[in-house]
Each structure stands twice: as C-alpha cells, then as structure tokens.
Design a protein around this nucleic acid. Structure first.
Length: 90
DNA sequence: CATTTGACGCCAA
DNA sequence: TTTGGCGCCAAAT
C-alpha cells in the first residue's frame, strides 16, 4: 500500500490515538502504549513523538514510565504530577 | 541523506 | 536497594 508517507505517520498516529484513548484517572506506561500501538519495544519512540507533538488534546501526562515514575513532560514534571493526582481524585 | 538525541526498559554489578 | 550501562525505535537536526 502507499505506505510511504503513510507509515511515517503510522507510529505517531497510533501513539496519539492510544494516548488519547486513555481514560481519565488512568495512567499507562510508554511500554504499554507502544505495545498497543503495535511497536512493543518502541517505548522511547513513543516519548519522542509525544515530546515533539505535545498536543493539549492528548493526555500525554497520563503516560508514565514502567517503573511507576512520572517520567517527563513538556510542561514540566510538576504539572504532570499535579494533573495525575487531580485526575485520580487526589 | 546520515547522524545524534531522547518524556524508556531491562539486566548486571 | 541503588547506580550504571546497553539495547530498541523513531523523530529531529
């Protein structure tokens, strides 16, 4: 298929889609998102995409590391933690 | 077009 | 338990 430019947006598109599907109050790991996106071991790539494509329509702050740590956030880990606690009802 | 970096993950010491 | 290093993938420069 015309997977030329298609594939280029395949990864990003999937990541955005998956992250956007994350319900409020729930947090997912980059590994999980990558896996659901179909790229399993592309945890880094997931963060790279979210980093460059930070969109307010995408709850990228709900995506954390598999260790349970928040990881990072384009707006600052501070805002990320605040949002997570708030969405979790804390 | 090729190289480097990067919001990660997991194993070893 | 904590710190360090290596590996994986895609994007950005």
């Amino acid at each position: 298929m015309e997977a030329r430019a298609r594939r280029k947006v395949f990864f990003k598109d999937k990541v955005f889609e998956v992250v956007r599907k994350i319900p409020k109050g729930e947090t997912k790991t980059y590994k999980e998102v990558a896996s659901l996106a179909g790229f399993g071991g592309a945890a880094r790539a997931v963060g790279a995409v979210l980093r460059t494509n930070y969109d307010l329509a995408i709850p990228c702050h709900r995506v954390i590391k598999s260790d349970g740590t928040l990881g990072g956030y384009n707006r600052g880990p501070n805002a990320k933690r605040a949002l997570l606690e708030k969405e979790n009802g804390l």
